[in-house]
Design a protein around this nucleic acid. Structure first.
Lengths: 346, 346
DNA sequence: GTGAAAGCGCTAACAG
DNA sequence: CTGTTAGCGCTTTCAC
């Protein structure tokens, strides 16, 4: 097992190179201000010694350390790791490193994580936070902060266009001949859930769809299975679900009943995560630009750190689109006869 | 948008509390060494001012900043985010924060990420690294480092028991009546791939299975589809795939041919990630204790940081188990007639 | 117990 | 262009 030794400092390099420490510093932080030959020499010596500048010591003077925190409720949720990847690559590109906090859906853990990471980063990305608007604003006073997937007054945010996406889904269903749709709701505290439901109400009215709502449900396979009964009771021929996992759970639950997808009922999800593609039949879903969401968030935050004065704090809205797969189709011809409503599921 | 102000320092607190800065410092870092009433007073004043100690300034003196880096090839791969979550929660529990680097399967990016993060963390977790053993050891000289999913001489590591897992899979297949199995290989550079293949060779011999190997293939859906032809040509009745995604890709590819799973061929995956459960039929797979892998890695690393002198650098081996689902079954009775080998797939 | 002073590794401001 | 001198915010001797 390799023995770890104390890394060389700027002074070691300075001595070895026969120059002043400040010159070494300059050679690394603003190469332009140093004779090209000395700079070269210093670099060589440094490399030789295995010198790496200590970013936090630097941060002490510059009060920036090129660290960004991203706080997510659940790393294992496909929804978030696409966002994380977008954020990570944008951060790396801008020379920032990401600090990751998984709050495991707990508001308490989220608060703790934030308190621990806030003092050490230059800015924070909050993805689908469970905090109150007031709590968010409090933290935003301490460090530049940006909210993903939720609009908060006076706080920069990036959201997806739930309205447009839902509208497309409604049009799609109406176009197939559906007359009714039920929204299968997700977590009560979710901003996205509220936003999607409201959007569906509007869109349904515009395209002439009768709309119901069941829930709330956990955004999990189990939650989807639990939604079966309520959905069937709503007697709609189509379901728009809070997210993909919930939709898949619903589809699975329906399979245990006499109801088949898409012949009896059509199911639409939200987010276009990997599962939508894996499930059989493929899940028609509203695609959120997850990676772009993370990337845009980081870019805006970094711009702010660099002094960009964006007067407005209107949310940045990213477009959504409908991805049509096998889970939607025309409803049964004799529509008067609603689908069987007795759930025989486990 | 909230205005961000410069956070209060230890001096601000000292002045407001009417004590010396060093006393404030002590009140936070070693409360025992301070009069309990003064300490209380200081805490109150600090809270009042919204003081948070700057971890990196502290780190300058103590040369520890409670940061750990985790480097993964692909955040969006379910395999890794289970590991990440395990690592994250173990880190949080030990008072450490995780810094995340996604190298997007690129050795170059991995090197860059490491160079950027190494100087700022106390230790590094390398998950399924693409580096050479020599490269790993070089970095291990600079900071305590631990490798996940790969055994490297002279370097602490945590791996899963591929041997045992593969053995179980082989026994399962043999028990069902299979006489032949083909290993569908993953990336060439992968330590896990080599390890699994070797394990299968041994296990197959022991249980009396004829064994072949096809590949390498990308560990993706596409890679799995591309493996179809080679697999069919191998004329085996069972496939053991490098990982779940590859297995799912293979199953999908097979569906486009005349071959059905599990009636014509059985398919076994590796890792027991979410997709194994979602796919139809469910994928029988060797389950790796992913979360435990991440957690154990962090715990070992932290122990080392705290001065634990573990003499040996033998890999820590975590148990694997076989999870049986619908993708495996008894081979067709008339086994002389091998499955159709003409691939009609896209 | 508490204060004063030095220093962690680096950058910044000021001379030359 | 380069050297000198102060700090950045905190911890750590060493006195008292």
């Amino acid at each position: 097992m390799a023995r770890v030794q104390r890394p060389p400092t700027i002074y070691d390099v300075a001595r070895a190179a026969g120059v002043a420490p400040s010159t070494v510093s300059r050679a690394f932080s603003r190469p332009g201000r140093v004779n090209v030959r000395t700079a070269e020499h210093i670099r060589a010596v440094a490399m030789d010694l295995g010198y790496h500048t200590n970013p936090f010591a630097r941060g002490l003077s510059t009060s920036r350390n090129n660290l960004l925190a991203i706080v997510v409720p659940d790393i294992t949720n496909p929804f978030f790791f696409e966002i994380i990847r977008g954020a990570e690559s944008a951060a790396a590109e801008a020379g920032y490193t990401l600090v990751l906090s998984d709050t495991q859906e707990s508001a308490r853990l989220e608060r703790l994580a934030l308190e621990r990471t806030l003092p050490m980063v230059d800015g924070v990305l909050l993805a689908s936070t469970r905090m109150t608007d007031a709590g968010i604003r409090t933290h935003a006073k301490q460090k530049p902060l940006l909210v993903l997937n939720r609009a908060v007054a006076d706080t920069p945010s990036v959201v997806t266009d739930n309205h447009l996406g839902t509208r497309r889904a409604a049009e799609h269903l109406a176009g197939l001949g559906h007359r009714s749709v039920t929204y299968v709701a997700g977590p009560e505290a979710s901003w996205a859930d509220a936003s999607r439901w409201l959007a569906l109400r509007d869109a349904a009215a515009e395209v002439g769809l009768r709309v119901r709502r069941v829930g709330p449900h956990q955004p999990t396979l189990v939650g989807g299975a639990q939604a079966v009964e309520g959905f069937l009771a709503s007697r709609a021929t189509a379901a728009l679900c809070y997210n993909d996992i919930l939709a898949v759970g619903l589809m699975r639950g329906l399979r245990s009943t006499r109801v088949t997808v898409p012949d009896d009922v059509s199911v639409v999800g939200f987010d276009n995560t990997l599962v939508a593609e894996l499930v059989e039949p493929g899940l028609t879903t509203v695609s959120a630009p997850l990676r772009a969401l993370g990337a845009t968030g980081v870019q805006n935050l970094v711009a702010r750190l660099n002094g960009a004065r964006t007067g407005s704090t209107e949310p940045v809205v990213l477009p959504a689109a409908l991805v049509v797969r096998g889970s939607t189709g025309a409803p049964r011809p004799r529509q008067g006869r609603a689908p069987a409503i007795t759930a025989k599921s486990a």
